[in-house]
Amino acid sequence: MQYENIKMAHFIVRDNRFICHCQLIETGEVVIVHVKNTGRGKEVLLKGALVALHYQPSPKRKTDYDLIAVKKAEMWINIDSQLPNKLAYEGILTGKIKLPHFPGKLASLKREVTYGNSKFDLFATSDTNAAAFIEVKGMTLENKGVGAFPDAPTLRGLKHVKELQAAFHAGYYAYILFIVQFEQISQATIHTAMQPQLAENFTLAIADGVEVLAYNCKVEPNQVTVKGQVPFDVTYPFVDPN
């Protein structure tokens, strides 16, 4: 994923879930910025933090800037919540992202397909007539090389895990794919302390046959590339940095 017209800035303050103020490094101007992630991001959105803004001026927009990445120590973390689905789609199509145990060769890959009461991000079929639902989640929370999801409670996530279990029992292959929006990670897990019920649901789903995958990314201010698979363990302990 390549971004055009990136402007570097320093983060000032987050007004609410959707809006923050940043100071452009080039001009010193303080601008209103759309935050492309409704997660809390408390550990990275700190006053003075170096951030990357996507400049997209338009009379139809309330602001000309989107906050897409923030630098944490020496590592860039992409926080664009629309990015994981794009990377997952392209990664599966090109074979960069593998679906374990999915038989045959990929025949089709569709976006946003409804099953039961949920709309899953991707639906794959193979040349052996196998079919799979894939739910994609972005992971932006990190501490000491461990990545965790979520950084805020998610009712939608609870619902999707249960629906994937139902799909698996109905004969579909079922996957949850985490796109880790940073590079330096040794282990991916569920933030149990944030949402114990989600961890429990993941444990039950995995025991049933739902497969959980995590792929990290090489992140630069203007570019994000899927790098490779990283270990996922729902029981691995995570210490919240906030």
Rank of each mutant, 00 (worst) to 15 (best):
P150R: 08
I176H: 09
I190R: 01
Y172S: 07
G147N: 03
H191V: 01
L155R: 10
I179T: 13
A193G: 00
Q184S: 13
N143V: 05
A188T: 06
G147T: 06
M194I: 04
F178Q: 12
K144N: 13
F168M: 06
A193I: 00
T140E: 12
T192G: 01
G147Q: 03
A188C: 14
G171F: 11
T154G: 01
L155G: 04
V161P: 03
L198Y: 15
T192D: 01
T140F: 12
Q184E: 15
V180Q: 05
L198D: 07
Q195P: 00
V146W: 07
F133K: 08
A167C: 10
L177D: 08
L164F: 13
E183C: 03
R156C: 00
L158M: 11
A152N: 05
L155A: 12
L158K: 09
L177K: 08
V180E: 08
N143T: 02
Q184W: 14
A174E: 14
I134T: 14
Y175N: 07
T192S: 02
P196K: 02
A174D: 10
F168W: 14
F178A: 06
T192E: 09
V180P: 07
V136W: 07
L141I: 05
K162T: 11
I176E: 14
A167E: 13
A188Q: 09
Q197T: 05
Q195H: 00
V146K: 04
S186V: 02
E163H: 04
L198R: 02
S186Y: 02
A188R: 01
G157F: 05
Y173L: 06
R156Y: 12
I176C: 06
H160N: 14
Q184Y: 14
E183G: 10
I134D: 07
H191D: 12
Y175H: 09
I190F: 04
A188G: 04
V146S: 02
L164M: 11
Q184G: 02
Q195C: 00
I190W: 06
K159S: 09
E183A: 10
E135H: 10
G157L: 09
A167I: 06
V161H: 02
I176M: 15
Q184R: 14
H160F: 04
F182R: 14
Q195S: 01
G138Q: 11
F168K: 14
M194D: 00
Y175Q: 13
V136L: 11
Y172G: 06
K159N: 10
G157A: 11
M139Q: 12
A199H: 08
G138I: 07
M194C: 05
I190T: 05
F178K: 10
V161E: 05
R156S: 02
A148W: 11
A148P: 01
Q195L: 01
A199Y: 00
H169Y: 03
K162D: 15
T192P: 00
D151N: 15
F168E: 11
F149Q: 00
H169V: 05
L141D: 07
I190S: 00
Q187H: 12
Y173S: 08
Y172E: 09
K159A: 08
A152Y: 12
T140M: 10
K162L: 14
T140L: 04
Q181N: 09
I190V: 13
F182M: 15
P153C: 01
T192V: 01
T189N: 05
P150C: 03
P153S: 04
